[in-house]
């Protein structure tokens, strides 16, 4: 038996090492699944379209001479349909680079995402 060529034993040893490494990798993969799920959910839940819709509604409201009842309607509809608390204020026209523009500040919060914007329209 002793005369058998034993130089290939390192291959078996490497096999063992790879198996141990795979075991620890499997542990890590097992842990990470939950993290990945919640993170991707947060990315998917960003209310991009809701914020865009709100902005366009506010700009229409400015075009329509800032009716107080429309403001209340926008706030109520956002709360009822989009579950978002919104508030916005429109200032008097200012001269911005030769154009008459209204300073607008928008606040949006749906419990996950809070969004604040100050712009001119």
């Amino acid at each position: 038996m002793a005369r058998l060529n034993e130089e290939g034993q390192w291959i078996v040893l490497m096999g063992l090492l790879v198996a141990v490494a795979l075991f620890f990798l499997a542990l890590i993969v097992n842990q990470s699944a939950l993290v990945g799920q919640t993170t991707s959910e947060a990315v998917l839940e960003f209310p991009k379209n809701d914020i865009r819709d709100l902005r366009s509604a506010i700009f229409d409201y400015i075009d329509a001479e800032c009716n107080e009842e429309v403001e209340q309607d926008i706030i109520a509809i956002s709360l009822e349909r989009k579950n978002a608390v919104v508030s916005f204020s429109v200032g008097g026209p200012q001269d911005v680079q030769g154009h008459k523009m209204h300073p607008v500040s928008i606040h949006y919060n749906n419990g996950v995402t809070a969004y604040n914007e100050t712009t001119h329209y």
Binding site: V85, S87, H107, N109, G111, V112, A114
Partner: peptide
């Protein structure tokens, strides 16, 4: 998803 919105 309960929340308190500070500004409003």
């Amino acid at each position: 998803r309960w929340f308190y919105d500070g500004p409003t």
